[in-house]
Structures are given as C-alpha cells and as structure tokens.
C-alpha cells in the first residue's frame, strides 16, 4: 500500500474496485485500524469529520478508536456466514453494537433491534431477532449485518465485498437495500468489490486500485464511458454486456496480479499492459487529472492509445 489518498463526502457512495490483492480490503480495514498482524500503518493520516475539526484515526488512543468503530464508521464483511457469532442470538448481537456506544440508552438499544431488522426488510423481525445466525439464510445474515452496522447511525458504512458470497438474485436485493438506506438515512457508503456491475448500480464515484495504488478515480458514469487507464479499460471489457454485439469475445486480463512484496519497477501494471511504452518500465506515472473530476495514473491515456492502435483495441 503506497500513496493511497482519497476522500468520501457526507452521504456519498464510493466504490473501490480491484482484483484480490490490489489492496482494496486493506485500505478499508485501515480506516478502522483493523489491519491484522503483522500489517501496520507506517505513516499517513486517516481524517474523519467536518472540515476544521477532523480527527486522525491513526493518532487515536485505543479508547478513542474503540468509540470510533461501529459508532462513526461501521463495517460489514464479505462472508455473512462467518461474520456473526454462531452462539449468540442475532437480536443480541445487534443490541450489543448499540450497547458498546453511548448514542442510545440500554432501553432504546433494546427497542431499536426489531425496527432495525424491519428496516433491512427481514420478514417477521420480532421472531427473527430471537434466532441464531445458523437459522438465517446467507442473504438474511448480510441484512442483519447491515442492520447491526447501521444501528448506531454511523456517518459511513464500509461494505467489503458484501455480495460476493451470495446468490446473484440476493446480491441485487442487498445492493438495492444499500442504495435505499443511503438515500433514506444519508449514510455514506464505501463499497469494496471486484465486481464493476455492482459499483455501477450503487456508487456515484469509483476508485480503481491496482497493486496497492489508486490507478484511476472519478465519477462512475464518466469512468464507465471513457476509462483512461488501461487497467480500468480492460476491467470494463471483461464484464459481459447485453447491449453489445453478441459475438464479440470477452476480454480477460492476461497475466497474474502483481506480487506486492516484490512489485515491478516503473508502472506496476506494465507486465500486463498492452499499451506500454519504454517510459513505463522505468518511471512510475503520477496520478494526474485527465478530465474534470477524473484522474488516472498512466503515461499513455486510453483515448490516445485507442486512436493510435484502433485495430488492436477494437477487436482483440
């Protein structure tokens, strides 16, 4: 992880996209300082709050970080099957999240459990609160996790691959739920995923990560319409699209994700990049503005590359 810098505005939905090993989960974990040993935050700042009175997560004491977790920023994880304690009732685990902080009195916390479950559209919430996690389906568990995360009315919800472990139909429901909750409660959402389709349906802004770096960022619409980094470009080419010519082959990204302990010199993407020039092997490009609101880390921008090599890019 190196030089990752981004911001999330109040109520915004931001997608962080990348392959596994691209550093997107670590980025999310560091926001709550949950990076597992032996990883650590060597330097940098994670600021939270309104302009002028921001707190730096990295500098917080253990007590402060504990108050911060779940209260200001909540997090839900990839595998809802293993993310809830199997021996405690679902309702209890939600209540516990509120009891850990001072926002609600114990009585309020108790009374809020069922409405929270209802809010995430769990049927028969009164009965379900008394169930154990193994009595829930995967989708319901993820809903319960969302209810737990939102129970303290945090400003930001980080969802780390929230739909990857679920069936496709359930995935869509969870994304829809997150979208509605973001609209109704104004909770900002950071969605971490390798799935661009999920980002497209939820996020207004997208950050693409590769080898622990941000390689491109900008408004979702703009990036989907005209990606400027070759990696983003090939990511977009690798998702099936119904509206495109059926016989066009899907483009897969050849090569392996980079070894983070021994990254290549120059641009980290160059071993897999079909547009590389000599400079890419020696010097790492900076993250520069390529269009209003859109930044990319590349020497060769896609619009130039595609103009120069139309035959290669058009029909691989």
């Amino acid at each position: 992880m190196d030089g990752v810098s981004f911001h999330v505005d109040r109520g915004e939905t931001v997608g962080i996209v990348g392959e596994s090993g691209s550093g997107k989960s670590v980025t999310a974990m560091s926001i709550l300082r949950l990076v597992a040993e032996p990883g650590r935050i060597a330097s940098g700042r994670i600021l939270f709050g309104d302009e002028g009175k921001q707190k730096d997560v990295v500098q917080m004491t253990d007590d402060e970080i504990r108050e911060f977790r779940g209260n200001d920023v909540a997090m839900i994880f990839q595998d809802p099957m293993t993310s809830m304690n199997p021996v405690l009732k679902v309702g209890f685990q939600i209540k516990e999240a509120m009891a850990a902080h001072e926002r609600f009195t114990p009585k309020q916390a108790r009374d809020r459990v069922v409405p929270m479950l209802k809010r995430v559209r769990i049927p028969a919430p009164e009965d379900r609160a008394k169930n154990y996690p193994h009595q829930f389906s995967g989708g319901m568990r993820q809903r319960a996790m969302i209810a737990m995360g939102l129970s303290n009315e945090p400003h930001l919800l980080i969802a780390d691959e929230p739909t990857t472990a679920l069936d496709v139909t359930v995935q869509a429901q969870i994304i829809e739920l997150l979208r509605d909750l973001n609209r109704d409660l104004g909770t900002a959402v950071i969605l971490i995923t390798h799935n661009l389709a999920v980002v497209a349906s939820l996020c207004t802004r997208v950050i693409v990560m590769y080898a622990g770096r941000i390689v491109e960022e900008g408004p979702t619409r703009q990036i989907f319409k005209s990606p400027q980094h070759p990696y983003t470009w090939s990511l977009l080419r690798s998702i099936p699209r119904l509206d495109e010519y059926q016989h066009e082959k899907l483009l897969t990204i050849s090569g392996l994700p980079p070894d983070l302990t021994n990254p290549p010199p120059g641009c980290k993407f160059h071993p897999r990049c079909r547009f590389r020039v000599d400079r890419c092997l020696e010097e790492e490009p900076p993250l520069g503005e390529v269009d209003p609101g859109q930044k990319a880390r590349c020497w060769v921008l896609m619009r130039n590359a595609l103009a120069a090599q139309p035959q290669q890019a058009g029909q691989p």
């Binding site: 709550l32 949950l34 504990r66 108050e67 911060f68 977790r69 779940g70 209260n71 909540a74 997090m75 994880f77 595998d79 293993t82 993310s83 809830m84 304690n85 199997p86 405690l88 516990e96 999240a97 850990a100 902080h101 996790m145 737990m148």
Partner: peptide, 21 residues
C-alpha cells in the same frame, strides 16, 4: 475468526471481545 473481527469492528470493549466472543 471473522465474527471476532466483527466484534472489534463494532467497537466492543476488549474484555467483551475476549470473554463473550
């Protein structure tokens, strides 16, 4: 386990994470 990570992410006190979770 993932659920212990969840417990930390909720902001539970360390004592509760160890004993209860």
């Amino acid at each position: 386990q993932d659920y212990v990570r969840t417990a930390w992410a909720k902001g539970l006190r360390p004592r509760l994470v160890v004993i209860r979770h």
